[in-house]
Amino acid sequence: MISINDNVTRYIDEILDREEELNVKSYYLENQATVIDCGVNAVGSIGAGILYAMVSLGGFGKISMVPGIIDDYYLHFSQVYIDSPYLACLGSQKPAWKLKIEGYTGTAFGPARAISQKPKALYSAIDYTDDSETAIINIESQALPGEKEIDFIAKQCSTDPECVVALVAKPNSIAGSIVNSTRTVEWVLNRLYQLGYDTRNITSASSATPIAPVMSGEQESMGVSFDSIAYYGMAFLYAKCQDERFKDAVSASSKNYGKGFLSIMKESQGDYSKVDPAMFTTARLTVNGLEDGITKGYGKLNPSMLMTSYGLKNI
Rank of each mutant, 00 (worst) to 15 (best):
C241Q: 15
E21H: 09
Y73F: 15
F236C: 03
S309F: 06
I46S: 12
V287T: 06
D71L: 12
M305I: 07
N5Y: 09
A42K: 10
S3M: 10
E149C: 11
K255F: 03
L301E: 04
S253C: 11
I139K: 07
V8T: 15
T182M: 11
K120I: 10
N314T: 10
N138E: 02
I315L: 13
I139V: 13
G47V: 15
L99I: 15
I63P: 03
G176W: 08
F77M: 06
I115S: 04
D198A: 12
Y52D: 08
I202Y: 00
K120Q: 10
G49V: 12
E21R: 11
I136P: 10
T107M: 08
N302F: 09
D130Q: 04
Q242D: 11
E133L: 15
S141R: 06
V168E: 07
V35E: 02
N23L: 11
G106I: 00
G39W: 13
L189R: 05
N190Q: 06
P67N: 12
D292L: 04
S26W: 11
D72W: 11
V80Q: 05
M54L: 12
M54K: 14
R245E: 14
D130K: 00
A239E: 05
I115T: 04
L90A: 13
F246C: 02
D72C: 10
S228H: 05
Y123S: 06
D160T: 09
L189N: 08
F109H: 01
Y11S: 12
L122Q: 05
